[in-house]
Design a binder for these strands. Structure first.
Length: 479
RNA sequence: GGCGCCGUGCCCAAGUGGUUAAGGGAGGGGCCUGCAAAGCCCCCAUUCGUCGGUUCGAAUCCGACCGGCGCCUCCA
């Protein structure tokens, strides 16, 4: 079998055939950094990470680029509304640049905590204004633009296949259904490439351009940066489903308008994380960040595990009950892996856990081949995760093989399994050690009430006592 | 108004024409234990929103209806 991916362009699952298998050109839409990424946003980055890891797992070379949109977006279409960065700046008293930098750092921190591999390039929009201007100029030369009311617009009537990705029927789109009509536009679907007329004070991020001092529109930065780093034709471009009708539709119009060539071969879009009340929205204010989950006692990787439980093209219903289930499951995987380490004789002294390729002779390959097939089937992570359990539950599998099998799967899953250390006697304070001794004496004397009191006392101090045939073990609580 | 998606056990969720409807969590029972915890074993949907239809056969295809949601504004 070979990798099959669901292409939004054409709405069908297709065999993945990159233009160059040694360097798959992957572009994913990154964050807009005027606020923290919420956990719904983060689901999208986990998805892209699994995609990239899968490609690498299957032997493809990958070049992954993700933009950081640090230029302000308006909260409304057509030069109305307010720039989100400016708004944030006004509210916090910091400069827009500081705001962008702060949230960019927060984003990378969260991504790292989720075991998301850093893309090879993470270009900032503000660092690519010349490329953006050049792209607009090329569109202008080819006659795709017009100027009205001080802004440069893209004229979608010049691009015959406009809206193909989204299956838009332009004649049925209802202009102004939710937004005021921009009277400068010739066609309601036209969009701004360059603004010179800012309606608000304090527009801090402005640059000189052939059309006047101003700032770029909201879709052009992705076209400019993707083409700068990956060339005119990409293999895969991903993002959330919300990008299909506008952002990605406009990106295609911009890129293909300039090059006359197909911009992206495979468009992949992830579905939303939803709450009872619907999707989590960045502009609604009430949203959960990864830090919120951490404060509530979850490991970031519990959330990653949770994301992997559902297919990326399905809505995933978030609840703390469901997250608890993921946490319980992941903790169990961790302890099972530690048990395998013990069986396989892996200690921190012998040091290494098996990391290299699993030998063909290993019985674990039976599981790895179905695992691989699950991923090749449009990234069925839900099934892929179930293969971890299958390995863990197969008692006929030698511990070393089970261990190497699970760690091989970890290359894609990224659940932190390769970072698991053998379980060992925890260094405990002298006071705890003394209590432990006291408790053993109590147990020998069959004074269990006292033994239990001591156990509670030790628990208060942050350590869990677990009795076993070979004597009591002490672990840090909540491991 | 237009376009689109979803509805599977207590919860999350896979499966999208054909053996017993993955997997996890929770729950129940058992083994083990002084008791716990952990671990292990067993149980937990004759049924896939409802009603029709197509088919030898449907959770999977078609239609209607009910319910939920997304997009057409920035948004993962």
């Amino acid at each position: 079998m070979s990798l099959k991916l669901h292409n939004t362009l054409g709405r069908e699952t297709q065999d993945f055939e990159p233009r160059d298998a040694t360097a798959v050109r992957l572009y994913s839409c990154g964050p807009t950094v005027y606020n923290y990424a919420h956990i719904g946003n983060l689901r999208a980055y986990v998805f892209v990470d699994v995609l990239r890891r899968t490609l690498e797992y299957l032997g493809f070379g990958v070049r992954h680029v993700m933009n950081i949109t640090d230029v302000g977006h308006l909260s409304d279409d057509g030069d109305h509304g307010e720039d989100k960065l400016v708004k944030r700046s006004r509210e916090s008293g910091s400069s827009v640049w500081d705001i962008a930098e702060f949230y960019t750092e927060a984003f990378f921190r969260h991504a790292g905590q989720l075991n998301i591999l850093l893309p090879h390039e993470t270009p900032r929009a503000t660092a690519h204004i010349p490329q953006i201007i050049e792209l607009i100029q090329r569109l202008e030369e080819k006659g795709y633009t017009y100027t009205a009311g001080g802004n440069v617009y893209y004229d979608i009537s010049r691009f015959p296949t406009y809206g193909q990705l989204a299956g838009l029927d332009l004649s049925t789109l209802k202009a102004g259904a939710r937004v005021d009509v921009d009277t400068n536009k010739r066609n309601p679907g036209d969009f701004v490439l360059w603004f010179t007329k800012s309606k608000f004070e304090n527009q801090a991020m402005v640059w000189d351009s052939p059309w006047g001092r101003g700032y770029p529109g909201w879709h052009i930065e992705c076209s400019a940066m993707s083409m700068t780093y990956l060339g005119e034709q990409l293999d895969i471009h991903c993002g959330g489903v919300d990008h299909i009708p506008v952002h990605h539709t406009n990106e295609i119009a911009q890129a293909e308008g300039v090059t006359g060539k197909q911009y992206v071969k495979y468009w992949l879009h992830n579905e939303f994380l939803v709450l009872d009340k619907g999707k989590m929205s960045k502009s609604d204010g009430g949203f959960l960040t990864l830090d919120t989950l951490i404060e509530k006692g979850y490991d970031p990787l519990d959330y990653r595990y949770f994301c992997l439980l559902a297919h990326y093209r399905s809505e995933l219903r978030f609840s703390f009950e469901a997250l608890d289930a993921a946490r319980s499951a992941r903790r169990k995987v961790v302890s099972q892996v530690q048990a395998l380490m013990a069986s396989a004789g892996v200690t921190s002294d012998t040091g290494h856990v098996p990391t290299g390729p699993v030998p063909d002779s290993s019985p674990a390959n039976e599981y790895l081949s179905v695992f691989r097939a699950d991923l090749e089937d449009d990234l069925n992570t839900s099934r892929a995760v179930s293969r971890v359990w299958a390995v863990l539950k197969d008692d006929s599998l030698p511990a070393e093989d089970a261990l190497s099998g699970v760690l091989d799967m970890e290359r894609v899953l990224g659940l932190g399994l390769s970072a698991i250390r053998p379980e060992e006697e925890t260094e405990v304070p002298e006071a705890v050690r003394a209590l432990l001794e006291e408790r053993q004496q109590a147990r020998s004397a069959r004074d269990f009430a006292r033994a239990d009191r001591i156990r509670d006392e030790v628990l208060e101090m942050g350590y869990t006592i677990v009795d076993s045939a070979t004597g009591p073990h002490v672990k840090r609580r909540d491991s």
